[in-house]
C-alpha cells in the first residue's frame, strides 16, 4: 500500500522552518563573529583570576587612615 502523497502545505512548512533555522544560525554566527572582532580589536582586556595583585591596590592617601 502506497503512502498518500505529501500535501503541498507540508513542503511549504518545511521550507519556512528551514529558512528560519538558517536565519537563526546565521544570526548566532554573526553575533559570535562580532564578539570576536570587538574583543580582538578593542582595548587590552584583563582577566581577574582571584589572585591578589598588589600593584592594583590604590595607593594610601596622604593624611588618611589607610
Amino acid at each position: 500500500m502506497a503512502f498518500k502523497p505529501e500535501h503541498e502545505i507540508y513542503k511549504r512548512r518545511f521550507g519556512r522552518n528551514l529558512g528560519l533555522g538558517l536565519v537563526l544560525a546565521g544570526f548566532v554566527a554573526l553575533v559570535f563573529g562580532l564578539t570576536v572582532v570587538k574583543v580582538t580589536n578593542g582595548d587590552p582586556m584583563q582577566g581577574f583570576d582571584h589572585v591578589v595583585r598588589p600593584e592594583m591596590t590604590p595607593a594610601p592617601q596622604p593624611g588618611g587612615n589607610g
Binding site: H7, E8, I9, R12, R13, G15, R16, L18, G19, L20
Partner: peptide, 11 residues
C-alpha cells in the same frame, strides 16, 4: 485544495 500557507519567501 484548501488554505495556502505562506512560504519563507512570502515573509
Amino acid at each position: 485544495a484548501g488554505p495556502v500557507e505562506a512560504g519563507f519567501g512570502d515573509y
